[in-house]
């Protein structure tokens, strides 16, 4: 894409967002909606600015949880995928339970994590990892199957061992799939963090939403939601950046 085209690609969504915010502002002003049910964008901005220290302190806590949970999900997800692909028996035994693990209602299981580990960071990290690891495993397993069988045969004629087939064949071929999974997992991990904090936390942006809800401080709640979205977008962007740096060949195609 040319530099000009890239700028043009940004103009439309930003213009749309400004239009949307403008309409929102006008609607709230003219229809005289009470601030406690729907604050205007300017009210949200000023409420957020007033509570900026509170928001930023709690944002750092939530960001820390998300990064830890996401990292744990990557490690567990990739190791599980490798185990599943290494043996038919493990695949048959484990794969159905992965699906079952996603049927467990997360808000219901989060308090149990709290009972196990206490009222600290650990249950939150576990909840985030629980919701984020699934798309990682599923995509990594698909990816590890994706290598061209003819290529693997060719590597075998060169005397490649099983380990070498994985390292030089199946694993690199799986990376584009893995990154697709990571992008979905990035979005899910923010949702997981909010859930986890609702259930078992006295800090973080998710917890702050509950507190603000009790105080009917709707404007600041909206500011928190905005921050949470920003965190999700940031994590997604980080994954996309890593993909660009680690898979230059994938973009060159």
């Amino acid at each position: 894409m040319s530099g000009n085209g890239r700028i043009r690609a940004w103009v439309a969504p930003i213009a749309f967002a400004l239009l949307f915010l403008g309409a929102w502002q006008l609607y709230v002003g003219f229809a005289d909606v009470p601030e406690s049910s729907l604050p205007s964008p300017t009210e949200i901005a000023s409420a957020g600015w007033e509570s900026r220290d509170l928001l930023i302190d709690n944002a750092w806590i939530t960001i820390g949880e998300i990064l830890l949970g996401f990292a744990l999900a990557i490690v567990v997800g990739v190791l599980l995928a490798l185990a599943i692909r290494s043996s038919r028996t493990i695949e048959r035994a484990v794969y159905p339970w992965l699906v079952v693990s996603q049927m467990v209602p997360v808000p219901a299981i989060a308090p149990i994590f709290v009972i196990w580990t206490g009222f600290d960071l650990r249950p939150r990290v576990m909840v985030i990892a629980l919701v984020a690891f699934f798309p990682i495993v599923v995509n990594a397993v698909d990816g590890l199957r994706a290598a061209d069988p003819a290529l693997l045969r060719l590597l075998r004629t060169m005397g490649a061992t099983r380990r070498q087939l994985l390292r030089h064949g199946s694993f690199p071929a799986s990376l584009p799939f893995l990154f697709s999974g990571l992008k979905v997992a990035a979005a899910l991990s923010v949702i997981g963090a909010v859930f986890a904090e609702w259930v078992g936390s006295s800090e973080g942006l998710g917890h702050l939403i509950l507190v603000l809800n009790n105080a009917t401080d709707t404007a600041t709640m909206f500011a928190v939601i905005f921050l949470l979205s920003l965190i999700g977008i940031g994590l997604f962007g980080l994954v996309a950046l890593a993909e660009r740096l680690l898979l230059p060949w994938y973009r060159a195609r």
Partner: peptide, 13 residues
């Protein structure tokens, strides 16, 4: 024994 098929099978990565 070296083997070369019709498809080049170059690794895109």
């Amino acid at each position: 024994v070296a083997y070369m098929p019709q498809a080049d099978l170059l690794m895109p990565w």
